[in-house]
Amino acid sequence: MANGTVKVDVIGHVAVMTVSRPEKLNALDLDMLKALGAAADEVEANTQVRAAILTGEGKGFSAGGDIRAWGGMRPEEFGHAWVRYGHRVFERLATLRVPLIAALNGHALGGGLELAGVADIRIAEEQIKIGLPETGLGMVPGWSGTQRLVKRFGPQVVRRMALGGEIFTAPEARSLGLVDIVTETGNALSSARSYAERIATRGPAALEVVKLMIAAASGEDNGSAVEALGSILVAKTGDLKEGVASFVEKRPATFKGEW
């Protein structure tokens, strides 16, 4: 399906979300943020999907936030309608129930790197560059560049990008843990498909639970991850079924502690 500026295609058990604004190197504006959120919801709702891929159309993965989209905003509008809304969308992608692979077919800079950072696995083509250039514009990373990226990649590499303005090549990014696999130019999506298909052969329930456990262990999502794990566990019990049945039938529940 097409979803505004983000295309969603499902083949077998793999969904591909493609950011589609190639004439702007897939720079993000509000419409694209909304479309990314809707795409995440679509993938989440499809019970056939066991792995997902996020990529960009054309020569770029994402050049980050479109300056024309936010440059003229009032400070309060910038903080709420742009930064906080983007946070919600990126968090939605980061907490997809299925593993997410970013296929970096082009540069991932600023908000583009923050977008790549929501994925569980990053596969980059050898020609791409990665960085956080925001301070050169007098601003700061606003979509978890100093939060999620620090948790996932470590504070020092983020310091080098955000404070020092360093831009890394794909091989350098791999050596620093920013990407997991480097592939030849033009091969990011096919490599991501192969990796996603490997994931899709594994137990879907186990994948979902392991993803939640890793999020809790890394401190990214302690509260909601623990509650999701507990809720899934309790939902499988005979006690929950009995509790719901007793409520519907307006009678006292008889719990047996059955798992």
Rank of each mutant, 00 (worst) to 15 (best):
R84G: 02
N26F: 11
A38K: 11
A245H: 01
T135M: 08
L33N: 01
N3Q: 13
E220P: 14
L132Q: 13
G138I: 05
L28N: 06
G223F: 07
G111T: 12
D180P: 05
G112Y: 12
T146I: 08
S191Q: 13
M32W: 00
K129M: 13
I130D: 05
K241H: 07
L36T: 01
R92N: 15
R84E: 14
T135K: 15
K241Q: 05
G72D: 11
G111N: 09
H13T: 11
G243T: 04
M73A: 12
L96R: 02
D66A: 05
I181D: 00
G111S: 09
L36N: 01
R21M: 09
P155V: 04
G86F: 14
I181V: 13
G203L: 01
E242V: 04
L207R: 15
T18N: 03
H87E: 12
A245K: 14
E184P: 00
L233R: 10
M161Q: 01
L113Q: 15
A51H: 06
A103M: 08
N26C: 10
G164E: 02
E249T: 00
G60Q: 06
P99A: 03
D9M: 13
R251S: 06
M17W: 02
A94T: 05
A192C: 10
L229C: 07
R152M: 11
A216T: 13
A170Y: 05
E114I: 13
G71N: 12
S175W: 07
T47P: 13
S246R: 05
M213D: 04
A63G: 10
R68N: 04
A102K: 06
D29P: 02
R74H: 09
G243K: 07
D66F: 00
A39W: 06
D120E: 14
A235P: 06
I199T: 06
E242D: 04
G238H: 08
F90H: 15
Q147D: 15
A253F: 02
K151T: 12
G71E: 12
T254K: 12
A173F: 09
G164S: 06
G79H: 08
Q156Y: 08
K34A: 03
M17S: 09
E57S: 15
S20T: 15
V150D: 03
T55H: 13
R92K: 15
L149R: 03
S20E: 12
A173D: 03
V89E: 07
G58D: 08
I128G: 12
V43K: 07
D120R: 15
A196R: 07
R21D: 14
W259M: 13
R193S: 05
M213P: 04
N222I: 08
A162W: 06
Y85A: 06
G223T: 11
E44Y: 00
V244C: 04
E44M: 01
G186I: 09
T55I: 10
A217L: 13
I128A: 09
L109N: 02
L36H: 02
W82N: 09
V244F: 09
S190G: 00
L33P: 00
E134C: 09
R122T: 01
A170H: 05
G72W: 15
K250Y: 03
K151C: 11
G186T: 11
S246P: 03
A225T: 10
G12Q: 11
A119Y: 06
A94Q: 14
A162V: 11
D9A: 10
V140N: 14
I67N: 09
K256H: 12
P22V: 04
D239G: 08
M17Q: 11
F78G: 04
T183S: 00
L28E: 06
V248C: 04
F168V: 10
A196G: 03
F255C: 04
I130C: 02
